[in-house]
Design a protein around this nucleic acid. Structure first.
Ligand SMILES: Nc1nc2c(ncn2[C@H]2C[C@H](O)[C@@H](COP(=O)(O)OP(=O)(O)OP(=O)(O)O)O2)c(=O)[nH]1
Ligand SMILES: [Mg+2]
Ligand SMILES: [Mg+2]
Ligand SMILES: [Zn+2]
Length: 575
DNA sequence: GCCGTTTTCGGCCCGACTGTTTTCAGTCG
Protein backbone atom coordinates (compact mmCIF):
# COMPACT_ATOMS: atom_id res chain seq x y z
CA UNK A 1 0.00 0.00 0.00
CA UNK A 2 1.42 3.36 -1.07
CA UNK A 3 1.55 6.39 1.20
CA UNK A 4 -0.86 8.21 -1.05
CA UNK A 5 -3.49 5.53 -0.52
CA UNK A 6 -2.98 5.55 3.23
CA UNK A 7 -3.32 9.32 3.22
CA UNK A 8 -6.56 9.02 1.28
CA UNK A 9 -8.07 6.68 3.86
CA UNK A 10 -7.14 9.16 6.59
CA UNK A 11 -8.62 12.08 4.65
CA UNK A 12 -11.83 10.15 4.10
CA UNK A 13 -12.03 9.25 7.76
CA UNK A 14 -11.55 12.90 8.71
CA UNK A 15 -14.25 13.99 6.27
CA UNK A 16 -16.67 11.43 7.62
CA UNK A 17 -15.87 12.44 11.19
CA UNK A 18 -16.67 16.01 10.30
CA UNK A 19 -20.03 15.06 8.80
CA UNK A 20 -20.71 13.09 11.95
CA UNK A 21 -20.01 16.24 13.95
CA UNK A 22 -17.02 14.93 15.86
CA UNK A 23 -14.44 17.05 17.67
CA UNK A 24 -12.82 19.46 15.23
CA UNK A 25 -9.34 19.18 16.74
CA UNK A 26 -9.31 15.45 16.46
CA UNK A 27 -10.37 15.85 12.85
CA UNK A 28 -7.50 18.27 12.36
CA UNK A 29 -5.11 15.64 13.71
CA UNK A 30 -6.35 13.13 11.15
CA UNK A 31 -5.93 15.70 8.36
CA UNK A 32 -2.46 16.70 9.54
CA UNK A 33 -1.38 13.09 9.60
CA UNK A 34 -2.71 12.60 6.08
CA UNK A 35 -0.72 15.57 4.80
CA UNK A 36 2.42 14.37 6.58
CA UNK A 37 2.13 10.89 5.17
CA UNK A 38 1.31 11.96 1.64
CA UNK A 39 4.55 13.94 1.47
CA UNK A 40 6.65 11.50 3.44
CA UNK A 41 9.65 10.31 1.43
CA UNK A 42 9.70 6.79 2.83
CA UNK A 43 7.01 4.16 2.51
CA UNK A 44 4.97 3.91 5.72
CA UNK A 45 4.53 0.21 5.10
CA UNK A 46 8.32 -0.27 5.25
CA UNK A 47 8.67 1.73 8.47
CA UNK A 48 5.91 -0.32 10.10
CA UNK A 49 7.68 -3.53 9.12
CA UNK A 50 11.03 -2.37 10.48
CA UNK A 51 11.59 -3.36 14.13
CA UNK A 52 13.95 -0.45 14.70
CA UNK A 53 11.67 2.25 13.36
CA UNK A 54 8.56 3.93 14.69
CA UNK A 55 5.95 5.83 12.70
CA UNK A 56 5.64 8.18 15.66
CA UNK A 57 8.88 9.73 14.39
CA UNK A 58 6.70 11.37 11.76
CA UNK A 59 5.39 14.74 12.93
CA UNK A 60 1.66 14.62 13.64
CA UNK A 61 1.63 10.88 14.28
CA UNK A 62 1.17 9.85 17.90
CA UNK A 63 0.37 6.58 19.59
CA UNK A 64 -3.24 6.43 18.53
CA UNK A 65 -2.69 7.25 14.89
CA UNK A 66 0.24 4.84 14.78
CA UNK A 67 -2.12 1.97 15.51
CA UNK A 68 -4.64 3.36 13.03
CA UNK A 69 -1.87 3.30 10.42
CA UNK A 70 -1.08 -0.30 11.20
CA UNK A 71 -4.73 -1.16 10.77
CA UNK A 72 -4.97 0.68 7.45
CA UNK A 73 -1.90 -1.07 6.11
CA UNK A 74 -3.22 -4.45 7.28
CA UNK A 75 -6.74 -4.24 5.95
CA UNK A 76 -7.11 -1.07 3.90
CA UNK A 77 -9.36 0.70 6.36
CA UNK A 78 -9.76 1.51 10.03
CA UNK A 79 -12.53 0.86 12.52
CA UNK A 80 -13.58 4.47 12.78
CA UNK A 81 -13.99 4.78 9.03
CA UNK A 82 -15.91 1.50 8.82
CA UNK A 83 -18.29 2.58 11.57
CA UNK A 84 -18.93 5.93 9.91
CA UNK A 85 -19.56 4.28 6.57
CA UNK A 86 -22.43 2.40 8.21
CA UNK A 87 -24.03 5.76 8.94
CA UNK A 88 -23.19 7.59 5.72
CA UNK A 89 -22.76 6.34 2.16
CA UNK A 90 -19.39 6.83 0.45
CA UNK A 91 -20.98 9.48 -1.80
CA UNK A 92 -21.10 11.70 1.29
CA UNK A 93 -17.42 12.30 0.59
CA UNK A 94 -18.23 13.39 -2.95
CA UNK A 95 -20.92 15.74 -1.72
CA UNK A 96 -18.25 17.65 0.18
CA UNK A 97 -16.77 18.71 -3.14
CA UNK A 98 -19.96 20.58 -3.97
CA UNK A 99 -19.61 24.28 -3.25
CA UNK A 100 -22.08 25.48 -0.68
CA UNK A 101 -22.46 22.08 0.91
CA UNK A 102 -20.35 21.45 3.96
CA UNK A 103 -20.37 18.79 6.65
CA UNK A 104 -23.34 20.28 8.50
CA UNK A 105 -25.49 20.55 5.41
CA UNK A 106 -24.66 17.06 4.25
CA UNK A 107 -25.47 15.57 7.63
CA UNK A 108 -28.80 17.37 7.50
CA UNK A 109 -29.58 16.02 4.03
CA UNK A 110 -28.90 12.45 5.13
CA UNK A 111 -31.03 12.96 8.19
CA UNK A 112 -34.04 13.69 5.99
CA UNK A 113 -33.43 11.87 2.74
CA UNK A 114 -32.40 8.37 1.77
CA UNK A 115 -30.10 9.30 -1.09
CA UNK A 116 -26.84 7.71 -2.17
CA UNK A 117 -25.85 9.26 -5.51
CA UNK A 118 -24.96 12.64 -6.96
CA UNK A 119 -27.86 12.30 -9.39
CA UNK A 120 -30.28 11.93 -6.51
CA UNK A 121 -28.86 15.07 -4.92
CA UNK A 122 -29.37 16.85 -8.22
CA UNK A 123 -32.96 15.62 -8.36
CA UNK A 124 -33.54 16.81 -4.80
CA UNK A 125 -32.57 20.32 -5.88
CA UNK A 126 -34.63 20.20 -9.04
CA UNK A 127 -37.65 19.04 -7.05
CA UNK A 128 -37.10 22.03 -4.72
CA UNK A 129 -36.87 19.71 -1.75
CA UNK A 130 -33.60 21.05 -0.37
CA UNK A 131 -35.25 24.33 0.57
CA UNK A 132 -37.58 22.49 2.91
CA UNK A 133 -34.67 21.74 5.20
CA UNK A 134 -33.80 24.18 8.00
CA UNK A 135 -31.37 26.93 6.97
CA UNK A 136 -31.53 25.97 3.32
CA UNK A 137 -33.19 27.88 0.50
CA UNK A 138 -33.72 28.38 -3.20
CA UNK A 139 -30.40 30.16 -3.70
CA UNK A 140 -28.57 27.20 -2.28
CA UNK A 141 -30.41 24.80 -4.59
CA UNK A 142 -29.24 26.84 -7.57
CA UNK A 143 -25.70 27.00 -6.30
CA UNK A 144 -25.61 23.26 -5.72
CA UNK A 145 -26.98 22.57 -9.20
CA UNK A 146 -24.30 24.74 -10.81
CA UNK A 147 -21.64 23.09 -8.74
CA UNK A 148 -22.84 19.58 -9.63
CA UNK A 149 -22.52 20.54 -13.30
CA UNK A 150 -18.92 21.62 -12.61
CA UNK A 151 -18.28 18.45 -10.67
CA UNK A 152 -19.37 16.36 -13.63
CA UNK A 153 -16.87 18.20 -15.82
CA UNK A 154 -14.14 16.90 -13.51
CA UNK A 155 -12.09 20.04 -13.19
CA UNK A 156 -9.45 19.13 -10.68
CA UNK A 157 -6.10 20.76 -10.12
CA UNK A 158 -3.92 22.44 -12.74
CA UNK A 159 -0.29 22.26 -13.73
CA UNK A 160 1.92 24.96 -12.24
CA UNK A 161 2.76 26.13 -15.77
CA UNK A 162 -0.90 26.56 -16.70
CA UNK A 163 -1.61 28.48 -13.51
CA UNK A 164 1.41 30.69 -14.03
CA UNK A 165 0.36 31.67 -17.54
CA UNK A 166 -3.26 32.23 -16.54
CA UNK A 167 -2.11 34.46 -13.68
CA UNK A 168 0.10 36.56 -15.93
CA UNK A 169 -2.77 37.13 -18.35
CA UNK A 170 -5.20 38.10 -15.63
CA UNK A 171 -2.69 40.36 -13.90
CA UNK A 172 -2.21 42.25 -17.13
CA UNK A 173 -5.95 42.76 -17.48
CA UNK A 174 -6.43 43.87 -13.87
CA UNK A 175 -3.45 46.21 -14.00
CA UNK A 176 -5.36 48.35 -16.50
CA UNK A 177 -7.51 49.60 -13.63
CA UNK A 178 -6.25 52.99 -12.49
CA UNK A 179 -5.03 53.49 -8.94
CA UNK A 180 -3.64 50.01 -8.45
CA UNK A 181 -0.15 49.77 -7.05
CA UNK A 182 0.50 46.06 -7.01
CA UNK A 183 -1.03 42.80 -8.14
CA UNK A 184 0.69 39.70 -6.83
CA UNK A 185 -0.03 36.04 -7.34
CA UNK A 186 -0.01 34.29 -3.97
CA UNK A 187 -1.26 30.88 -2.80
CA UNK A 188 0.19 27.61 -4.03
CA UNK A 189 1.40 29.31 -7.22
CA UNK A 190 3.75 31.55 -5.27
CA UNK A 191 4.90 28.56 -3.26
CA UNK A 192 5.72 26.81 -6.53
CA UNK A 193 3.58 23.79 -5.78
CA UNK A 194 3.60 21.26 -8.61
CA UNK A 195 -0.14 21.49 -9.11
CA UNK A 196 -2.32 24.45 -8.27
CA UNK A 197 -5.97 24.32 -7.21
CA UNK A 198 -6.87 27.92 -7.97
CA UNK A 199 -5.39 31.37 -8.54
CA UNK A 200 -5.03 33.62 -5.52
CA UNK A 201 -4.37 37.23 -6.47
CA UNK A 202 -3.65 40.01 -4.04
CA UNK A 203 -4.11 43.67 -4.98
CA UNK A 204 -3.33 46.92 -3.25
CA UNK A 205 -3.57 50.62 -4.00
CA UNK A 206 -6.06 53.44 -3.44
CA UNK A 207 -8.50 51.87 -5.91
CA UNK A 208 -7.90 48.26 -5.01
CA UNK A 209 -11.58 47.57 -4.49
CA UNK A 210 -12.34 48.76 -8.02
CA UNK A 211 -10.17 45.93 -9.25
CA UNK A 212 -12.77 43.57 -7.82
CA UNK A 213 -15.39 45.16 -10.04
CA UNK A 214 -13.15 44.92 -13.05
CA UNK A 215 -12.38 41.32 -12.18
CA UNK A 216 -15.98 40.11 -12.11
CA UNK A 217 -16.56 41.98 -15.37
CA UNK A 218 -13.71 40.08 -17.04
CA UNK A 219 -15.11 38.59 -20.27
CA UNK A 220 -13.77 35.15 -19.49
CA UNK A 221 -15.54 34.98 -16.12
CA UNK A 222 -18.49 32.64 -16.46
CA UNK A 223 -19.60 32.29 -12.89
CA UNK A 224 -19.26 34.67 -9.97
CA UNK A 225 -18.97 32.67 -6.77
CA UNK A 226 -18.89 35.60 -4.40
CA UNK A 227 -18.22 39.27 -4.34
CA UNK A 228 -17.86 41.54 -1.35
CA UNK A 229 -16.06 44.71 -0.33
CA UNK A 230 -12.70 42.99 0.16
CA UNK A 231 -12.65 39.95 -2.03
CA UNK A 232 -14.23 38.29 -5.02
CA UNK A 233 -14.19 34.76 -6.45
CA UNK A 234 -15.13 33.53 -9.88
CA UNK A 235 -14.71 30.66 -12.31
CA UNK A 236 -12.68 31.73 -15.31
CA UNK A 237 -12.25 30.30 -18.80
CA UNK A 238 -13.49 27.06 -20.28
CA UNK A 239 -11.18 25.14 -17.95
CA UNK A 240 -13.23 26.45 -15.02
CA UNK A 241 -10.20 27.75 -13.15
CA UNK A 242 -11.25 29.39 -9.89
CA UNK A 243 -9.71 32.77 -9.16
CA UNK A 244 -9.81 34.45 -5.74
CA UNK A 245 -8.94 38.15 -5.69
CA UNK A 246 -8.29 39.86 -2.39
CA UNK A 247 -7.90 43.61 -1.94
CA UNK A 248 -6.07 45.09 1.06
CA UNK A 249 -4.60 48.45 2.04
CA UNK A 250 -0.93 49.24 1.51
CA UNK A 251 -0.03 49.16 5.20
CA UNK A 252 -1.31 45.59 5.41
CA UNK A 253 0.29 44.32 2.23
CA UNK A 254 3.08 42.34 3.89
CA UNK A 255 0.74 40.65 6.32
CA UNK A 256 -1.68 40.07 3.47
CA UNK A 257 1.00 38.42 1.36
CA UNK A 258 1.97 36.30 4.31
CA UNK A 259 -1.63 35.23 4.78
CA UNK A 260 -2.52 34.67 1.14
CA UNK A 261 0.67 32.80 0.29
CA UNK A 262 0.01 30.14 2.88
CA UNK A 263 0.18 27.30 3.14
CA UNK A 264 -2.76 27.04 5.47
CA UNK A 265 -0.72 24.78 7.74
CA UNK A 266 2.15 27.26 7.74
CA UNK A 267 -0.25 30.08 8.59
CA UNK A 268 -1.79 28.20 11.46
CA UNK A 269 1.64 27.42 12.89
CA UNK A 270 2.90 31.01 12.51
CA UNK A 271 -0.29 32.41 14.03
CA UNK A 272 -0.06 30.02 16.95
CA UNK A 273 3.49 31.20 17.52
CA UNK A 274 2.25 34.80 17.45
CA UNK A 275 -0.39 34.03 20.06
CA UNK A 276 2.18 32.45 22.34
CA UNK A 277 4.27 35.62 22.02
CA UNK A 278 1.33 37.81 22.99
CA UNK A 279 0.33 38.89 19.48
CA UNK A 280 -2.47 38.35 17.04
CA UNK A 281 -1.65 37.80 13.37
CA UNK A 282 -4.12 38.20 10.53
CA UNK A 283 -3.99 39.46 6.95
CA UNK A 284 -4.32 42.98 8.37
CA UNK A 285 -1.12 42.86 10.35
CA UNK A 286 0.55 41.75 13.53
CA UNK A 287 -1.06 43.29 16.62
CA UNK A 288 -0.41 43.23 20.32
CA UNK A 289 -3.03 41.05 21.93
CA UNK A 290 -3.53 43.35 24.93
CA UNK A 291 -4.17 46.70 23.24
CA UNK A 292 -4.48 45.95 19.52
CA UNK A 293 -1.61 48.23 18.50
CA UNK A 294 0.00 47.33 15.20
CA UNK A 295 3.49 45.90 15.45
CA UNK A 296 4.12 44.95 11.81
CA UNK A 297 2.35 44.47 8.49
CA UNK A 298 3.82 46.51 5.68
CA UNK A 299 6.26 43.85 4.53
CA UNK A 300 6.57 40.11 5.07
CA UNK A 301 10.07 40.68 6.38
CA UNK A 302 8.68 42.89 9.13
CA UNK A 303 6.10 40.29 10.15
CA UNK A 304 8.55 37.40 10.35
CA UNK A 305 11.10 39.65 12.09
CA UNK A 306 8.68 40.62 14.82
CA UNK A 307 8.02 36.94 15.44
CA UNK A 308 11.72 36.21 15.84
CA UNK A 309 11.92 34.46 12.49
CA UNK A 310 14.06 34.94 9.43
CA UNK A 311 12.05 35.68 6.29
CA UNK A 312 10.95 32.33 4.90
CA UNK A 313 11.02 31.75 1.13
CA UNK A 314 7.48 30.88 -0.07
CA UNK A 315 8.59 27.52 -1.46
CA UNK A 316 9.37 26.34 2.07
CA UNK A 317 6.12 27.41 3.69
CA UNK A 318 4.53 24.02 4.19
CA UNK A 319 4.94 23.69 7.97
CA UNK A 320 7.52 21.00 7.53
CA UNK A 321 10.27 22.38 9.75
CA UNK A 322 10.81 25.77 8.10
CA UNK A 323 9.48 27.75 11.07
CA UNK A 324 11.82 26.05 13.53
CA UNK A 325 14.71 26.53 11.09
CA UNK A 326 13.85 30.21 10.62
CA UNK A 327 13.80 30.65 14.39
CA UNK A 328 17.25 29.13 14.77
CA UNK A 329 18.80 30.82 11.73
CA UNK A 330 19.12 27.47 9.97
CA UNK A 331 17.35 28.29 6.70
CA UNK A 332 19.46 27.38 3.68
CA UNK A 333 20.52 29.82 0.97
CA UNK A 334 18.32 28.53 -1.82
CA UNK A 335 19.30 28.04 -5.43
CA UNK A 336 18.08 30.65 -7.95
CA UNK A 337 17.55 30.57 -11.68
CA UNK A 338 20.58 32.78 -12.23
CA UNK A 339 22.82 30.09 -10.70
CA UNK A 340 22.07 27.65 -13.52
CA UNK A 341 24.91 27.71 -16.05
CA UNK A 342 23.72 25.11 -18.49
CA UNK A 343 20.75 22.99 -19.47
CA UNK A 344 21.85 19.38 -19.63
CA UNK A 345 18.86 17.34 -20.79
CA UNK A 346 17.35 18.09 -24.21
CA UNK A 347 16.35 16.41 -27.45
CA UNK A 348 16.80 17.29 -31.12
CA UNK A 349 15.43 16.23 -34.49
CA UNK A 350 17.94 13.39 -34.33
CA UNK A 351 15.23 11.66 -32.23
CA UNK A 352 11.93 13.15 -31.07
CA UNK A 353 12.93 16.81 -30.66
CA UNK A 354 11.50 19.49 -32.92
CA UNK A 355 14.64 21.52 -33.50
CA UNK A 356 18.18 20.82 -34.62
CA UNK A 357 21.21 20.71 -32.35
CA UNK A 358 22.30 24.10 -33.68
CA UNK A 359 18.89 25.66 -32.99
CA UNK A 360 18.78 24.28 -29.46
CA UNK A 361 22.31 25.46 -28.72
CA UNK A 362 21.57 28.90 -30.12
CA UNK A 363 18.41 29.21 -28.02
CA UNK A 364 20.31 28.13 -24.92
CA UNK A 365 23.04 30.65 -25.65
CA UNK A 366 20.40 33.38 -25.87
CA UNK A 367 19.21 32.41 -22.40
CA UNK A 368 22.71 33.17 -21.15
CA UNK A 369 23.88 29.61 -20.59
CA UNK A 370 27.57 28.69 -20.80
CA UNK A 371 26.90 25.18 -22.00
CA UNK A 372 24.32 22.59 -22.98
CA UNK A 373 24.29 18.82 -23.09
CA UNK A 374 22.40 17.31 -25.99
CA UNK A 375 20.82 14.10 -24.74
CA UNK A 376 18.76 12.33 -27.37
CA UNK A 377 17.08 8.98 -26.81
CA UNK A 378 18.69 5.57 -27.18
CA UNK A 379 17.57 2.82 -29.53
CA UNK A 380 14.98 1.24 -27.20
CA UNK A 381 12.77 4.19 -28.10
CA UNK A 382 12.43 2.92 -31.63
CA UNK A 383 9.46 5.17 -32.36
CA UNK A 384 11.68 8.19 -31.79
CA UNK A 385 14.50 6.68 -33.85
CA UNK A 386 16.75 6.44 -30.79
CA UNK A 387 20.52 6.22 -31.19
CA UNK A 388 22.32 2.88 -31.37
CA UNK A 389 26.01 2.42 -30.48
CA UNK A 390 27.28 3.46 -33.90
CA UNK A 391 25.26 6.66 -34.01
CA UNK A 392 26.12 7.48 -30.39
CA UNK A 393 29.85 7.19 -31.03
CA UNK A 394 29.52 9.23 -34.24
CA UNK A 395 27.57 11.85 -32.32
CA UNK A 396 30.29 12.13 -29.68
CA UNK A 397 32.82 12.71 -32.46
CA UNK A 398 30.57 15.26 -34.18
CA UNK A 399 30.28 17.27 -30.95
CA UNK A 400 34.05 17.26 -30.44
CA UNK A 401 34.31 18.73 -33.94
CA UNK A 402 31.63 21.33 -33.27
CA UNK A 403 33.42 22.58 -30.17
CA UNK A 404 36.56 23.32 -32.20
CA UNK A 405 34.91 26.47 -33.47
CA UNK A 406 33.65 28.97 -30.93
CA UNK A 407 29.85 29.14 -31.00
CA UNK A 408 29.56 31.22 -27.84
CA UNK A 409 28.30 28.16 -26.00
CA UNK A 410 29.94 24.91 -25.18
CA UNK A 411 28.25 21.68 -26.22
CA UNK A 412 28.52 18.39 -24.38
CA UNK A 413 27.61 15.15 -26.04
CA UNK A 414 25.08 13.22 -24.05
CA UNK A 415 22.46 10.54 -24.23
CA UNK A 416 19.25 9.78 -22.41
CA UNK A 417 19.85 6.07 -22.34
CA UNK A 418 16.98 3.73 -21.57
CA UNK A 419 17.20 1.57 -18.49
CA UNK A 420 15.90 -1.78 -19.73
CA UNK A 421 13.58 -4.03 -17.79
CA UNK A 422 16.43 -5.92 -16.15
CA UNK A 423 18.36 -2.77 -15.25
CA UNK A 424 20.89 -3.04 -18.06
CA UNK A 425 21.48 0.14 -20.02
CA UNK A 426 20.26 0.13 -23.59
CA UNK A 427 23.73 0.70 -25.11
CA UNK A 428 27.02 -1.07 -24.44
CA UNK A 429 29.29 0.70 -22.02
CA UNK A 430 32.18 1.22 -24.46
CA UNK A 431 29.87 3.33 -26.59
CA UNK A 432 28.51 5.20 -23.57
CA UNK A 433 32.07 5.90 -22.43
CA UNK A 434 32.59 8.01 -25.56
CA UNK A 435 29.90 10.46 -24.48
CA UNK A 436 30.34 13.35 -22.04
CA UNK A 437 27.13 12.80 -20.10
CA UNK A 438 24.92 9.74 -19.80
CA UNK A 439 21.48 10.08 -18.26
CA UNK A 440 19.73 6.80 -17.50
CA UNK A 441 15.93 6.84 -17.65
CA UNK A 442 13.11 4.35 -17.30
CA UNK A 443 10.57 4.61 -20.13
CA UNK A 444 9.11 1.10 -20.16
CA UNK A 445 7.81 -1.59 -17.79
CA UNK A 446 6.85 0.93 -15.15
CA UNK A 447 4.53 -1.41 -13.28
CA UNK A 448 7.14 -3.71 -11.82
CA UNK A 449 6.84 -4.79 -8.21
CA UNK A 450 8.70 -2.37 -5.91
CA UNK A 451 11.43 -4.91 -5.14
CA UNK A 452 12.00 -5.61 -8.80
CA UNK A 453 12.06 -1.91 -9.67
CA UNK A 454 14.56 -1.29 -6.87
CA UNK A 455 16.86 -4.01 -8.22
CA UNK A 456 16.47 -2.63 -11.70
CA UNK A 457 17.57 0.85 -10.64
CA UNK A 458 20.39 -0.47 -8.45
CA UNK A 459 21.71 -2.43 -11.38
CA UNK A 460 21.53 0.59 -13.66
CA UNK A 461 23.59 2.54 -11.14
CA UNK A 462 26.38 0.00 -11.60
CA UNK A 463 27.05 1.25 -15.11
CA UNK A 464 30.35 3.17 -14.84
CA UNK A 465 29.34 5.77 -17.42
CA UNK A 466 26.07 6.73 -15.77
CA UNK A 467 26.08 10.25 -14.31
CA UNK A 468 22.40 11.12 -13.90
CA UNK A 469 19.21 9.25 -13.11
CA UNK A 470 16.60 10.93 -15.34
CA UNK A 471 13.04 11.68 -14.13
CA UNK A 472 13.65 9.12 -11.39
CA UNK A 473 10.05 8.22 -10.42
CA UNK A 474 8.46 8.37 -13.87
CA UNK A 475 5.37 10.18 -12.72
CA UNK A 476 3.24 12.32 -14.99
CA UNK A 477 1.23 14.79 -12.96
CA UNK A 478 -2.47 13.93 -12.86
CA UNK A 479 -1.87 11.12 -15.38
CA UNK A 480 0.52 8.52 -14.06
CA UNK A 481 1.56 7.66 -10.53
CA UNK A 482 5.25 7.50 -9.71
CA UNK A 483 6.50 3.94 -9.83
CA UNK A 484 7.33 2.69 -6.40
CA UNK A 485 10.69 1.42 -5.26
CA UNK A 486 12.94 1.63 -2.22
CA UNK A 487 13.95 5.24 -2.68
CA UNK A 488 16.35 5.23 0.28
CA UNK A 489 18.36 2.32 -1.01
CA UNK A 490 18.61 3.81 -4.45
CA UNK A 491 19.70 7.13 -2.96
CA UNK A 492 22.38 5.46 -0.87
CA UNK A 493 23.73 3.60 -3.86
CA UNK A 494 23.62 6.69 -6.09
CA UNK A 495 25.54 8.67 -3.48
CA UNK A 496 28.15 5.94 -3.30
CA UNK A 497 28.57 5.88 -7.07
CA UNK A 498 28.41 9.60 -7.66
CA UNK A 499 25.24 9.47 -9.74
CA UNK A 500 23.09 12.60 -9.65
CA UNK A 501 19.32 12.74 -9.37
CA UNK A 502 17.60 14.74 -12.05
CA UNK A 503 15.00 17.32 -11.20
CA UNK A 504 13.19 17.20 -14.50
CA UNK A 505 11.73 20.69 -15.04
CA UNK A 506 9.13 19.66 -17.56
CA UNK A 507 5.88 20.96 -15.97
CA UNK A 508 4.07 17.65 -16.36
CA UNK A 509 6.89 15.80 -14.60
CA UNK A 510 8.70 17.88 -11.93
CA UNK A 511 10.47 14.68 -11.03
CA UNK A 512 12.00 14.31 -8.45
CA UNK A 513 9.49 16.32 -6.46
CA UNK A 514 10.44 18.67 -3.62
CA UNK A 515 9.89 16.18 -0.79
CA UNK A 516 12.02 13.48 -2.37
CA UNK A 517 14.73 16.01 -3.20
CA UNK A 518 14.86 17.13 0.41
CA UNK A 519 15.06 13.61 1.71
CA UNK A 520 17.75 12.63 -0.81
CA UNK A 521 19.78 15.71 0.06
CA UNK A 522 19.74 14.72 3.72
CA UNK A 523 21.41 11.48 2.66
CA UNK A 524 24.09 13.29 0.70
CA UNK A 525 22.66 13.15 -2.81
CA UNK A 526 23.54 15.61 -5.59
CA UNK A 527 21.23 16.79 -8.32
CA UNK A 528 20.81 18.23 -11.78
CA UNK A 529 18.03 20.57 -12.87
CA UNK A 530 17.18 20.21 -16.57
CA UNK A 531 14.29 20.90 -18.89
CA UNK A 532 14.17 17.77 -21.07
CA UNK A 533 13.34 20.27 -23.83
CA UNK A 534 11.99 18.92 -27.11
CA UNK A 535 11.73 22.44 -28.55
CA UNK A 536 13.67 25.68 -27.95
CA UNK A 537 10.71 27.21 -26.12
CA UNK A 538 10.83 24.40 -23.54
CA UNK A 539 14.17 25.71 -22.34
CA UNK A 540 12.18 28.33 -20.43
CA UNK A 541 10.79 25.59 -18.19
CA UNK A 542 14.02 25.71 -16.18
CA UNK A 543 12.27 28.04 -13.75
CA UNK A 544 9.84 25.27 -12.72
CA UNK A 545 12.75 22.98 -12.02
CA UNK A 546 14.54 25.56 -9.92
CA UNK A 547 11.37 26.17 -7.92
CA UNK A 548 11.12 22.43 -7.32
CA UNK A 549 14.75 22.35 -6.19
CA UNK A 550 13.95 25.20 -3.79
CA UNK A 551 11.02 23.22 -2.41
CA UNK A 552 13.62 20.54 -1.73
CA UNK A 553 15.72 23.05 0.25
CA UNK A 554 18.59 22.95 -2.26
CA UNK A 555 21.34 25.51 -2.55
CA UNK A 556 23.45 26.10 -5.65
CA UNK A 557 26.17 23.78 -4.38
CA UNK A 558 23.76 20.83 -4.48
CA UNK A 559 23.21 21.16 -8.21
CA UNK A 560 25.75 19.97 -10.77
CA UNK A 561 24.80 22.35 -13.55
CA UNK A 562 25.48 25.44 -11.48
CA UNK A 563 29.18 24.72 -12.07
CA UNK A 564 31.07 26.74 -14.68
CA UNK A 565 31.75 24.77 -17.86
CA UNK A 566 35.25 23.62 -17.05
CA UNK A 567 34.42 22.45 -13.54
CA UNK A 568 31.28 20.83 -14.88
CA UNK A 569 33.40 18.91 -17.38
CA UNK A 570 35.75 17.73 -14.65
CA UNK A 571 32.84 16.63 -12.50
CA UNK A 572 31.37 14.37 -15.19
CA UNK A 573 34.69 13.15 -16.54
CA UNK A 574 35.44 9.44 -16.82
CA UNK A 575 38.28 8.36 -14.59
C1' DG B 1 -5.65 13.21 18.50
C1' DC B 2 -1.30 15.80 19.09
C1' DC B 3 2.00 18.28 21.71
C1' DG B 4 5.31 21.04 25.17
C1' DT B 5 10.94 27.85 26.07
C1' DT B 6 3.96 28.44 29.84
C1' DT B 7 2.05 23.33 29.76
C1' DT B 8 2.26 15.80 30.34
C1' DC B 9 -3.35 18.75 30.75
C1' DG B 10 -5.47 22.05 28.32
C1' DG B 11 -5.12 24.32 24.70
C1' DC B 12 -5.53 24.04 19.44
C1' DC B 13 -5.66 30.81 13.70
C1' DC B 14 -8.45 34.26 12.26
C1' DG B 15 -11.35 36.75 9.01
C1' DA B 16 -14.81 37.46 4.59
C1' DC B 17 -19.09 36.44 2.46
C1' DT B 18 -23.78 34.52 2.02
C1' DG B 19 -28.33 33.91 3.15
C1' DT B 20 -29.92 29.43 5.84
C1' DT B 21 -30.44 35.16 8.97
C1' DT B 22 -32.81 39.32 12.87
C1' DT B 23 -28.34 38.58 15.81
C1' DC B 24 -25.57 34.32 13.40
C1' DA B 25 -24.27 29.63 11.51
C1' DG B 26 -22.09 27.60 7.88
C1' DT B 27 -18.78 27.61 4.36
C1' DC B 28 -14.71 29.06 2.54
C1' DG B 29 -10.04 31.45 2.13
N1 LIG C 1 -4.94 31.51 8.23
C1 LIG C 1 -5.55 30.78 7.29
N2 LIG C 1 -5.21 30.94 6.02
C2 LIG C 1 -5.83 30.19 5.11
C3 LIG C 1 -6.80 29.22 5.42
N3 LIG C 1 -7.21 28.65 4.28
C4 LIG C 1 -6.50 29.22 3.31
N4 LIG C 1 -5.67 30.16 3.78
C5 LIG C 1 -4.71 30.99 3.04
C6 LIG C 1 -3.45 30.21 2.80
C7 LIG C 1 -3.62 29.68 1.42
O1 LIG C 1 -2.40 29.41 0.78
C8 LIG C 1 -4.35 30.84 0.77
C9 LIG C 1 -5.10 30.46 -0.46
O2 LIG C 1 -5.99 29.44 -0.16
P1 LIG C 1 -6.22 28.21 -1.14
O3 LIG C 1 -7.37 27.44 -0.63
O4 LIG C 1 -6.32 28.71 -2.52
O5 LIG C 1 -4.95 27.28 -0.91
P2 LIG C 1 -3.59 27.15 -1.71
O6 LIG C 1 -3.46 28.20 -2.76
O7 LIG C 1 -2.52 27.09 -0.72
O8 LIG C 1 -3.67 25.72 -2.39
P3 LIG C 1 -4.48 25.31 -3.70
O9 LIG C 1 -3.45 24.89 -4.69
O10 LIG C 1 -5.25 26.50 -4.17
O11 LIG C 1 -5.33 24.18 -3.31
O12 LIG C 1 -5.23 31.33 1.78
C10 LIG C 1 -7.14 29.07 6.79
O13 LIG C 1 -7.97 28.22 7.16
N5 LIG C 1 -6.49 29.86 7.69
MG1 LIG D 1 -4.95 28.54 -4.11
MG1 LIG E 1 -7.96 30.19 -3.24
ZN1 LIG F 1 12.88 10.65 -20.73
Amino acid sequence: MENKEIARVLWETADLMEIAGEDSFRIRSYRNSATSIEGYPERIIDILKDENRKVTEIPGIGKRLASVLQEIVDRGSCERRDELLKKFPPTALEFLKIQGLGPKGIALIFEHHQITTMDELEQLCKDEKLRLLPRMGAKLEEKVLRSIAQYKMRTGRFLLSFAHEAAEELKKYLAETGGVEEITAAGSLRRGKETVGDLDLLVTGPNATEVLERFVAYPRVHEILGRGANKASAKVGREGLQVDVRALPRESYGAAMQYFTGSKEHNVAVRTRAVKMGFKLSEYGLFRADNDTRVAGESEQEVYDALGLAWIPPELRENSGEIEAAGEGRLPELIELKHIRGDIHMHTTETDGRASLEEMAEAAKNLGYEYVAITDHSKAIAMANGLDETRAVAFARQVRELNRQDRGIRIFSGLECDILKDGALDLANDALAELDLVIGSVHSHMNLEPAEMTDRLLRALECPSLRVLGHPTGRLLMQREPFSFDFDRVVMEAVKRGVHFEINASPERLDLNGNLVRSAKQRGAKFTVSTDAHHPKHLHNMWYGVVTARRGWLGPADVLNTLPAERFRNAIRHN
